[in-house]
Design a protein around this nucleic acid. Sequence first.
RNA 1: GCCGCUGUGGCUUAGCUCGGUAAAGCGGCUGAUUCGUAAUCAGCAGAUCGUGGGUUCGAAUCCCACCGGCGGCUCCA
Length: 626
Amino acid sequence: MQLLLIHSDYIEYETKKRTPVAEEIDPAMKSSRMEEVLTAFVAVESYDEADPIATAENAADEIRKLAGQVKTERIMLYPYAHLSSELAKPVVAVDVLKKLEETLSRDYEVKRAPFGWYKAFKVSCKGHPLSELSRTIRVGTEGKGEKEGRDEIVSEALKSEEKAISHWHVLTLDGELLPIEDFDFKEHPILLSFAEYETSKSRAVDKIPPHVELMRRLELADYEPGSDSGNMRFYPKGTLIKRLLEAHVLDTVGGMGAVEVETPVMYDVNHPTLKKYLDRFPARQYSIESDKRSFFLRFAACFGQFLMNHDMTISHRNLPLKMVEMTRYSFRREQHGELVGLRRLRAFTMPDMHTLCADMDHAIDEFKDQYTMCMKMLADIGLEDDYEVAIRFTRDFYTENQDFIKELVGIVGKPALIELWDSRFFYFVIKFEFNYIDALKKASALSTVQIDVENAERYDIKYIDKNGTEQRPTILHCSPSGAIERCIYALLEKAHLTSKAGGVPSLPTWLSPTQVRLIPVAERHIGYAGEVTAAMNDIRADIDDRDETVGKRVRAAGREWIPYVVVIGDKELESGVLSVTIRSESRKVEETAQELRSRVIAEIAEMPYRQINLPVLLSKRPVFFG
RNA sequence: GCCGCUGUGGCUUAGCUCGGUAAAGCGGCUGAUUCGUAAUCAGCAGAUCGUGGGUUCGAAUCCCACCGGCGGCUCCA
């Protein structure tokens, strides 16, 4: 919206002739005059269609501010199309103007000139410094015009979340639902940290997150100053780790019947179905303007998959129907203060799977399966005992499904934090998350599954049952690993904790960018090292052929957390037996190249493999960081 | 978004209080060295001191604004 504000001695107008978009008016509006008045010329623009109400509210705030400064009690709203070349549809414009009039009428004497008429007018400007001002009102974008902050899209869900009342409990292994203050946390210190974090009791910490330093030192990822905050760059080693994690998630859900799809990253804010969904999802969006349409960037794959489901013909024989997408990226415009390293990003990679189930009973069965699958997923990633469970649901759902919920605690074998809502604020009736708690006692959700009881209806998704009649499926949302970047964050934080406790920090072998490092003692051993890597071409082996002492190169391999380090000299050249240092056990073994290769292959067993993502010779590698 | 702290070669930092030719280590490059499990020696290159304004004869240093980062608050699908 464009505003031109004139502090006037008087404004008067007289309607002359209607245009094709003219609104119907009563005789009183045909001509008018106000004195000692703030005249507001208004052009409602196409961008404002994304959120007419917020636009009107923001504009009203701006007008109030100036009215206060120039100490006037009267306001004339005057539609003035010529302030913009990107006008809104007339219907929307009239709505916004009426809303603006209504809002301001509470505190001021307000008149509104009719929309869509040719009018003769006279205005007298007072001419003092504040008497002429223009303002651009933009909802959902920042830094345009003089308005900053507070004019972002805040969805209804985000607003209702502020009002939602949570009841906190712990569900014990005995199936007891205890109020949080009655639970004895003595045996469960991390669950206590998690509970405190969630309920915001204490969070006194003043350290830099360890993973931020590690992600750079290990040349995995870094901030990208050329982009928006929270949009990271990934170096080759970080990219490799990401691809491996992604592959493992896709393989796992593929194994349980999910089919992989791809959907667009941006959607029209004015699409009626999407608009309603936005209002039920508590996240802030990036919005972008293209020609005259406004789009938002997706924060998950729900939109694309549901729109696809809507157009599909689905039989009960196809259920449960699973579709998955590795969203590169999901975008969420998090508040600045919440962004840290790889923990919380504005652009992130997340596996997003949706399962259409025949009804709630089937959904509950599937939920259980996926819950178990998520446990295995985190164990595979290397976070087996490193998460706490949160289960959140509505009171109604609990009443009807107590046994099911108790079973979940039994499966994971430890008490869970429970959040209970009196009524349903979101699209789901139950969700769980597995949360990683880091050294700074901050909690981050990884795996999650939710049972959605709203979107089948909203997107008009249906299947045909045995009797040939249409039914609404119940939909599960599942992210088996949570955001991929966040998994890397958790692994780095975990390694840091290990190191602080006196252990050897490391990544799981299947995720290590280099699995075997060969260190030729002298130049004449490089050729043989090359033969050894050739014999190990299905694991990631590389050669530190730099002209440095053995000691220095061994140290470098240690700083890279490489699981197996081999020094190759005359002895190995003659015997064909290698001296292998096993990082995790801090000991040396004598093995042939084939034995070492088999050891690594056995260790990464069912996990995905990709070839090394840098030159095998370290002398050929550029330095990405430090 | 708000409050506080912070920003100096690729990296880590010194210099800033009290304005006067930007210093070191690591890394990189070149050469020597061909070395047996956590840092070999020598030399060289590399900095519009976050950006933009201001004060001053003179600004990395003082002032203002903005932009990143970190911590806290808020919040977390």
